[in-house]
Design a protein around this nucleic acid. Structure first.
Lengths: 354, 354
DNA sequence: CGGGATTGAGAAACCGGTCTCTCAGTCTGC
DNA sequence: GCAGACTGAGAGACCGGTTTCTCAATCCCG
């Protein structure tokens, strides 16, 4: 009587169940219910600890679940509950050590709260980025987005489709979207002050991707500083964000006659360092170089790189905290700004007499 | 009549639908069907291009879908289809540049085939690793697993629960599981041959995590080479896999009187390099150092690191290829081995006279 | 001891899709 | 002109859970 409860009719009924990889039928809530002689609702209640179930029944359900090696299907739960316990990180470039560190921090923090992390690299296709993000959003509960190149108006439109959303290195007017950014201006300010104190009066800026907001930030403050203080001459060279870009600009840097280089980031600084080394130019004796980010390997170059430290891991963890708050229904936290910390190392020194 | 099809009764029925973030009801297949005046089955057919639908109807469905900004729910599709178009990568340590590169290759290759990537870091908890993997497996279609420390018998048992599965840097007897490994023995052999050719006769091995298979591989071949050829004396020092581990061993390395160091990996080599530098020991004049992996930054150290290159990105892409084949129902591909390529750089030189 | 409140568990709707089955309508062939 | 094959689309089962609703059994209290 009990065993027959809910069991499908017919002798071949067993074959209706898909086989798991261990050769046994895949355990579902129905099979557990059947085995324990209770309804699916009761199994669900026991598995989730909701409501109260008679101890004797609960034990029977648990025993059946154990015997069948049952665990609720996350996909089915996601559909029923309307949440997936998954979030997505969307970054332009996974090769970027800063994003790798954000990824780590985010992954760990989310994992500690039982959430999984989906990652997507938007690579070089800015136009696909929106589609990618919207598509990613549909399979998870929230998004952490780093999109340095997407125009502000597009981002604004995108933001409400992606909500809950946390932005990295971008802010959005209106305050509806939590954002974590780095105070590029302060970082650049520190670097310039450091170089000025060493006597540099002609500084090259190796610019990052023109459409990148963080490049705009850096450039704006450099222009302002050079104009306002009249303390140094600024030379802007179009460059890029990768090692190879910096490497290719070494000759051009020497050509400007400048005594110091402010590179878009550490990678570019490394490339320039390497290029200058090949040209026989001594760093910092002839030219000083600074980077941005303080990626782990900045300490290991020759000479070690003077740069300004962005706490990428902490940003990743903080992104989780804010996204989690959003998922819990809290109002959006106000934008937060991380101030980089100047790291003076061997790649900067007193200006050469020109 | 048509408009009433499937519409719930009662004036307040509209409120039953959850609101999207744009303030409009979230588009579902039912609402599109209702709007187009067709059945849900037909909408499904049109959206998937299955079967044939009269052009006039198809157009009506597409128009309705467009008007409602409808896209099928990936979660619901996953449940109905029994596949998620998602795979997982499980690595012990996301900070490891080699795994970061595997991640990139895998992410890109999977993305090119419309699959998403879930990542999980098993961190330091070997005992949680199995649970983590099994749990991850349930929300995706297949797994790429790098599990250097899990005992072989546990891995064997785990493998069938995780299938389809591709292993990285591990093989499993029986051939049921595709695996991609690096020929550590050949790599170490190349490094040792290189060092011997430079006159080194006493070599320190800075060992990685004792439970790690790749550490075992390296150690085995080193022991064999030193015993068989009697060409050099081997000193094994317990170390680790991180920069700090190598850094801490610099003093001990000097203490052995050896003229060359074979480090477990590049990170350890960097640490040792840095530690020796602080101790005032010249590399390679007094001690030569070699790494393993050729992570991107191996070129930028002082001196640049002699190491052996593991094609991590290609391994990531290849992992996708093999997992994809498995998902398509192909039989498991035989284990593949990648032979590292020796990269001679500045950190190795002629042995000092001792 | 009887009646209302409380508790425990099952029936069934629901989440949002896919897909088989069925059947009406049209096409073909004799 | 009519039987049989074919085509297109709807009805409904299903994927595997959660949750509301309902109702029987028990509890408490006057």
């Amino acid at each position: 009587m009990v065993a027959a409860l809910g069991s499908p009719p017919g002798p071949a009924a067993e074959w209706r169940w898909a086989m798991g990889d261990n050769g046994r039928p895949t355990a579902t809530i129905s099979r557990v219910a059947e085995a324990a002689g209770v309804s699916r609702a009761t199994v669900s209640r026991v598995m989730n600890g909701r409501s109260t179930v008679a101890p004797e029944l609960a034990e029977r359900v648990l025993a059946a679940a154990r015997a069948l090696d049952y665990a609720p299907s996350p996909v089915a739960r996601s559909l029923a509950l309307g949440r997936t316990a998954t979030i997505s990180l969307i970054v332009p470039d996974l090769a970027n050590p800063t994003f790798q560190e954000v990824l780590r921090g985010l992954s760990q923090a989310a994992g500690e709260h039982g959430h999984r992390l989906l990652i997507a690299e938007s690579a070089e296709h800015v136009e696909d980025e929106e589609v990618l993000a919207v598509e990613a959003r549909r399979r998870c509960d929230g998004i952490v987005l780093a999109s340095p190149r997407l125009p502000a108006e597009d981002l604004g439109r995108l933001a409400q489709q992606l909500s809950p959303l946390v932005l990295i290195n971008r802010t959005l007017p209106g305050g509806g979207v939590p954002s974590l950014s780095v105070d590029h201006a302060a970082g650049i300010g520190d670097l310039v002050a450091h170089l000025l104190s060493l006597g540099h009066r002609k500084i090259v800026y190796l610019a990052g991707p023109p459409a990148s907001i963080s490049n705009q930030d850096r450039l704006d403050v450099l222009l302002r500083l050079s104009r306002e203080g009249r303390a140094f001459e600024l030379v802007e060279l179009a460059c890029g964000s990768m090692f190879e870009d910096g490497h290719a600009m070494a000759g051009a840097v020497v050509g400007t006659g400048a005594t110091a280089v402010v590179a878009y980031n550490d990678m570019v600084a490394f490339g320039t360092l390497s290029g200058l080394h090949e040209l026989g130019v001594a760093v910092p004796q002839q030219i000083s170089i600074t980077g941005f980010d303080d990626i782990p390997f900045a300490r290991f170059t020759t000479p070690p790189l003077t740069t300004t430290a962005v706490p990428a891991n902490a940003i990743g963890r903080d992104a989780w905290t804010r996204l989690w708050a959003l998922l819990e229904g809290s109002p959006a936290t106000p934008p937060a700004t991380y101030r980089p910390r100047l790291q003076v190392r061997g790649s900067s020194g007193r200006a050469a007499l020109s």
